[in-house]
Amino acid sequence: MSERKYIEPQPSAETQPFWDGAKQGKLLVRSCRSCDKAHWYPRNHCPLCGSRDLEWIEASGKGEVYSYSYMRRADPPYVMAYVTLAEGPTMMTNLVECDADKIRIGDKVQVKFIETSGGVHLPMFTPQSAVP
């Protein structure tokens, strides 16, 4: 089995603070002061109400598995998932440090950052029971 090689993300002006936060172990979510709702991915223009009065909030890092797919044929295999954050939005991620055959929709998960060879920290999730 090979070591996992990640495709390096390309931060934009809108998403740079997200990646800066990730480097510090913080899962930042864009939230709107006008409609009081968080959205995903981070934007400078609220997709829900149109306001530009936005703020970054630090998410709890807790969520639950919305759905997933085990990429059994990849080398190494990995688990893609959509995780619904406690703050509301659903985001694309991977489930790591877990038994792929035991994952179930609705499982509680906790964020865990994985550093790529390019030095970017990617938010992944792991079952909460696995977190000390």
């Binding site: 993300p9 390309q10 991915y41 997933y68 797919s69 990429m71 893609m80 959509y82």
Partner: peptide, 27 residues
Amino acid sequence: NAFLSYIYHAPWGFTSQGALYAIMLRR
């Protein structure tokens, strides 16, 4: 790898339409 481009989220290995429909089907 732009991370917000349509359905593709390459850093997480989500790089195909098949991945999208697999996740949809699972749910």
